[in-house]
Amino acid sequence: MTNKPLKIVFLLSRIETTGVTTHTIDLAKGLTDLGHRILLITGGISREKNARVELFYQQFKEMGVTVKEFKTPEGGLLSKGVQTIGSVFNMLKWIRKYNPHVIHAQSPYMTFVPWLLGKKFTTTIHQMGLKPNLKFKTPTHVIAISEESKRDSILNYGITEDQVSIIHHGVNKRYATAITIDEKLALKKSLGIPENKIVVGAVSSLSLRKGTDIMVKALEELSKDIKQKLYFVFVGGELNSKEYNWLSGMISDAKIASFTKQIAFRDPKPFYDIFDIFVLPSRMESFPLVTLEAMMSGCCPIRSNTEGAYEQINDGVDGLLFTTEKHEELSACLTQLVNNKDKMQLLAKNAKEKALATFTIPVMTQETLKIYEKIKIHNA
Rank of each mutant, 00 (worst) to 15 (best):
E220F: 04
L330P: 02
D276R: 02
P5N: 12
M91K: 01
D253P: 00
L130Q: 06
T124R: 05
L247H: 04
P114I: 15
I251C: 12
C333A: 14
L222P: 00
T365M: 11
L208G: 05
K242V: 14
A351T: 06
N245I: 15
L39Q: 07
V200R: 07
S190V: 03
D273G: 01
Q106A: 06
V9L: 08
F89S: 13
Y157L: 13
I198Y: 00
N240K: 13
G86T: 12
T66E: 15
V203W: 05
V142I: 15
K229E: 15
M344R: 15
R174Q: 10
T123S: 15
F89L: 10
N196L: 06
P281C: 10
K4L: 14
K197F: 13
L185N: 13
I193A: 07
I85S: 01
I167G: 01
N350R: 12
E221M: 11
R96T: 07
K68N: 05
K224I: 15
E243T: 08
S304W: 06
K242G: 01
I256Y: 12
G249C: 13
G211Q: 10
L34I: 04
S165D: 07
P5D: 06
I41C: 10
I166E: 02
T22G: 03
I167V: 15
R37Y: 04
H23Y: 15
V164D: 00
K370E: 10
H378G: 02
E293W: 05
Q127P: 00
I198N: 03
V216A: 07
H141Q: 08
P132F: 02
L117C: 08
G158C: 06
S205Y: 11
A357T: 08
G237C: 05
V65C: 14
Q59F: 02
G75L: 08
L206M: 14
A264Y: 01
I251D: 05
I38R: 05
G76A: 06
H126D: 09
Q83N: 02
I198Q: 08
V113S: 08
A380L: 09
P139N: 07
N133C: 13
P100H: 08
V65T: 09
T2E: 11
E221S: 14
L346C: 07
F56W: 11
L222I: 10
E367F: 03
F60W: 01
Y157S: 00
L185T: 14
Y109E: 11
G118P: 02
